[in-house]
Each structure stands twice: as C-alpha cells, then as structure tokens.
Simulated scan of single mutants.
Amino acid sequence: MARSVLVTGGNRGIGLAVARALAADGDRVAVTHRDTRPPDGLLAVRAEMTDPQSIDTAFDKVEAEHGPVEVLVVNAGITRDRLLLRMEERDFTEVVDVNLQGAFRTVRRAVRGMMRARWGRIVLMSSMTYAYGAPGQVNYAAAKAGMLGMARSLAWELGPRNITVNVVAPGLIDTDMSREITDGRRRHLLAITPLGHAGEVEDVAAAVRYLTGESGRYVTGAVLPVSGGLGLGG
C-alpha cells in the first residue's frame, strides 16, 4: 500500500536518491527544499529547519496532498567547516540548529499523526563523523552524534505505538558535497575505508528502504553504517 513519505532536504544528493527510491516503490513522496530548484516528479514544499512555523506549514501542505506523514526521513543539513580556533559561535549554533534541532522539530511534528495511526517509520540521516570525527567539523560531528541519542530515546518513547526510529550513518558517498573536500582528505578517508572506494547515493537509499520497509519492522534504535567499513566498530 502506498504510504505518505516526507524526506527533508530531498531536493539533491542522498535525500533525492532516497525520495526517488521510495517513489519507485509506489509511495507518495514529498521533499522539502529551500533555495534550490525543486526536483521534477515529486511534491516539493519549502521549509526552513530553524523555523517551527515553516515546518508546520510544510507538513500541512503534504498532509493536504498525500495524507498524514507515515514515513519521515530527516536528511536536511548544513556545514560550516572551520578549525576550532577560527570557528565563531554562530558557526557552531547554526549547524546544531539546522542539523539537530531541525531534526527534533521535524520529528515532533511528524509523530502527531503517527501516534494517532499507531504506526510510523522515522530515519535520521547522520554521518560516520559521529564515530571518527573530522578536523574542522566540531559542530557537524556534534550534531550528527546527537542524532544517535535522539533516536535511541525516541525508540523507547514511540515503540509502544509501533513507531520505529533509526539512524543511517553514511561514510564517503559520491555527492556534490563530498566532491568539495580536498584531495588529501579524500585520500585519507579512502585509506581508512576497508572497501577502498566511495559509495553511491543508491547505497544509502537502499538502507533507508530496508529500515522503512516490512523487512525492517523489528529494527528500532539502531545505527546502520553505509560506509564501506569506515569507522569500523565505532
């Protein structure tokens, strides 16, 4: 049966791949975007992750078109990379506000309908930086690590209503964002990736399909690395 799906930050990269994969499975998929052109073939709604009213409005539009959101994938995020001594406080707070508090705001809005329906699937898109860290990403790594605690606490709260909450943690994935890293950094990441190559956005989408599908119905509070072994054991 087709489900109402919302993917935040689903206008490009990993988010778009997830949205396309779930739409191909027959789900009614909506994505949020900000300033970039919305993708073709998907319901696109503007949303600002730092603004609860904007998130409410986005959900209202999705619910009017597709019904209450049953599957939520929190993918929207930003980076403000700087070494600690050069990092302004706003660089830290902005990243945490969008990436972590934005996840909180979005999940809080989504679970209203899920709890009434006594069913739901939530996936938070983290990063393997939660495990191995990265120079210049104190803010980003802290926000992505926070998603683990959020998911595991929510798994306890929402499990009795048959709502699962899981985390997907990509490693080096071939996206526009990853292509911006320096050659030296890329070589380092590949050197500590047992499979020795970057992943594709479709690899991450497959993990989300599993966690939100029937096969993943008994998985909650889990962290699923899609990293080629990067951060092994983290």
Rank of each mutant, 00 (worst) to 15 (best):
A169G: 13
A21K: 11
W119I: 04
V45Y: 01
T50A: 05
N166T: 06
I122Q: 07
R108Y: 03
E65S: 15
V98L: 04
V223A: 14
L84K: 02
D81F: 04
H188C: 00
H197E: 14
A47S: 09
R185D: 09
L42R: 09
V45I: 09
R109P: 02
V73T: 05
D183P: 14
L148T: 13
R116G: 15
P170K: 11
S54V: 13
L230E: 14
R46P: 00
R152H: 08
I173Y: 03
T193H: 10
N162L: 06
A155D: 10
P68T: 14
P194G: 11
P68K: 14
L232Y: 13
A58Q: 08
L232F: 12
M114G: 08
Y140T: 05
F104G: 03
I192M: 13
G149E: 11
V5C: 11
Y130I: 00
L85F: 11
R108I: 02
P39M: 13
V204C: 05
I122L: 08
N162F: 03
A58D: 09
A145W: 03
V165L: 01
D40R: 14
F59E: 01
T193L: 08
T164M: 01
M115K: 15
S54T: 09
S4K: 00
R187K: 13
P135C: 09
T50S: 09
L189Y: 13
V208N: 09
G26R: 13
N166L: 02
P39V: 09
M115R: 15
E63G: 14
G213W: 10
T193V: 07
K61H: 13
A76Y: 05
G102R: 03
A155R: 04
A198P: 04
D203T: 02
L83W: 11
L124Q: 07
A30K: 09
G231R: 01
N162V: 00
R20Y: 00
Y210V: 01
D35G: 15
A205I: 09
